[in-house]
Amino acid sequence: MTGLSNVEERFNPFAWKAKWLLEDRLKEAGADYTSGLPLKSHVVVDRNLYTGQNPGSSAALARRIIKDVSAA
């Protein structure tokens, strides 16, 4: 799972049109949501769930997955 934080969503001029934001929905559903600095790479691994906060996280996320799969 990956998704922009509320702060990052609001950088988009169309965010105000959204009926809901992903970060809010995840928290409402009981997810342990964490975020890094806006628009910076942020990767979180929880057992077999690998997530990246934004498109800028894709390289770090891919490197982490490759490292973990290679070690298995």
Rank of each mutant, 00 (worst) to 15 (best):
E23S: 04
A62G: 12
K17M: 11
L4P: 00
V44P: 03
G52Q: 03
P38D: 11
D24K: 11
Y50S: 03
F14M: 15
F11A: 15
N12V: 10
A29P: 01
Y50A: 00
W20A: 15
E23V: 13
E28F: 12
L26D: 06
G3T: 09
D68E: 09
T2W: 04
R25K: 13
L22N: 05
Y50P: 07
K17H: 00
D46M: 08
S35V: 04
L49Y: 11
F11E: 14
V45G: 02
L4Q: 05
G36E: 05
S5D: 04
G3M: 11
T2S: 07
D68F: 03
M1F: 06
H42K: 02
N12P: 12
L21N: 07
R47T: 09
H42R: 00
S41K: 00
R10S: 09
S57T: 00
E9A: 10
F11L: 15
G52T: 07
D68M: 06
A59N: 12
V44T: 15
T2C: 07
A29V: 01
R47A: 05
D46H: 06
G3V: 02
V69T: 07
R25M: 11
N12H: 15
N54Q: 04
D24F: 02
R47E: 07
D24C: 11
A62K: 01
R47C: 04
L49N: 09
T2L: 05
P55C: 03
V45Q: 05
S58P: 00
G52W: 06
A31Y: 07
A15S: 15
T34R: 05
V44K: 15
V7Q: 15
K27Y: 08
D46E: 02
T2A: 09
L61C: 00
E23A: 09
T2I: 11
E28G: 08
P13F: 15
D46C: 07
L22A: 13
A62T: 10
K19I: 13
E28R: 12
